[in-house]
């Protein structure tokens, strides 16, 4: 088991982070090149001020029309994304690992808060899955790629929760958790999760068009 743990926290972790960071960087760079080459008439209108105006207005819950018209989704998706980012970044156990490996240390969330936030992520995943199964307009457009993204995101939190509470075989669970987390990281640049990389830019583009050309709100 030690060898397996060493492997997933060593070479595999480096690989996952490498794929995530280099992959995201490469995807952003190549998309930028493609945009400049093939979307010049859109690229020309990109504007930092209007981009930020649009992004900020969409970051406020119930501000944009889209949020107001979809309250359940708004609550779910905001709670989901906040917890999804905050828990892994500020979890005590993860910060301890940063300290162990690199000597860096920073603020952490109390474990019981992180525990609840993990449950929020899992509950949100259930809501998303429920919408994909039960809500007609979502079910109609759901593809394998969407389920894949949902599963990839659910697993690290599910296994993390079980490992934390030491339910089932801890050693197996902790390795499963680490692998699941690494799969998620590595999948970000190459699956639907790439919206983490691109969403700010698609939003920024719409903000730029609506702000600079169409002089109307896009939220």
């Amino acid at each position: 088991m030690n060898a397996a743990y060493e492997f997933v926290t060593g070479p595999l972790a480096w690989a996952a982070w490498g794929i995530f960071l280099l992959g995201s960087g490469w995807r952003l760079y190549s998309m930028r090149q493609l945009a400049m080459k093939k979307d010049a008439s859109s690229w020309a209108f990109m504007d930092l001020g209007f981009s930020l105006r649009s992004i900020v207005n969409w970051l406020i819950p119930f501000n944009a029309l889209g949020w107001r018209k979809n309250p359940v989704m708004t609550v779910t998706t905001f709670a989901f994304h906040i917890c999804l980012i905050a828990v892994p970044v500020f979890l005590v156990a993860h910060v301890v690992l940063w300290t162990e490996f690199f000597g860096v240390s920073y603020a952490t969330l109390p474990d019981n808060v992180a525990d609840i936030m993990t449950l929020v992520v899992l509950a949100a995943c259930l809501v998303f899955a429920g919408r994909r199964l039960g809500q007609k307009e979502v079910a109609y457009i759901t593809t394998g790629k969407d389920w894949l993204a949902l599963v990839i995101v659910t697993l690290p939190f599910l296994t993390g929760f079980l490992a934390y509470h030491q339910v089932f075989d801890y050693q197996v669970m902790i390795i499963a958790h680490i692998v699941a987390g690494e799969i998620m990281l590595a999948a970000i640049p190459f699956t639907r999760l790439s919206h983490m990389v691109f969403a700010a830019f698609t939003r920024a583009y719409m903000g730029s068009e609506f702000g600079g050309v169409r002089h109307a709100r896009d939220w």
Partner: peptide
């Protein structure tokens, strides 16, 4: 180019 590609890829099918 990039517009269609990102739209097709990042639409989360949220409905």
């Amino acid at each position: 180019g990039a517009r269609l590609k990102t739209y097709a890829e990042t639409c989360m099918r949220c409905g």
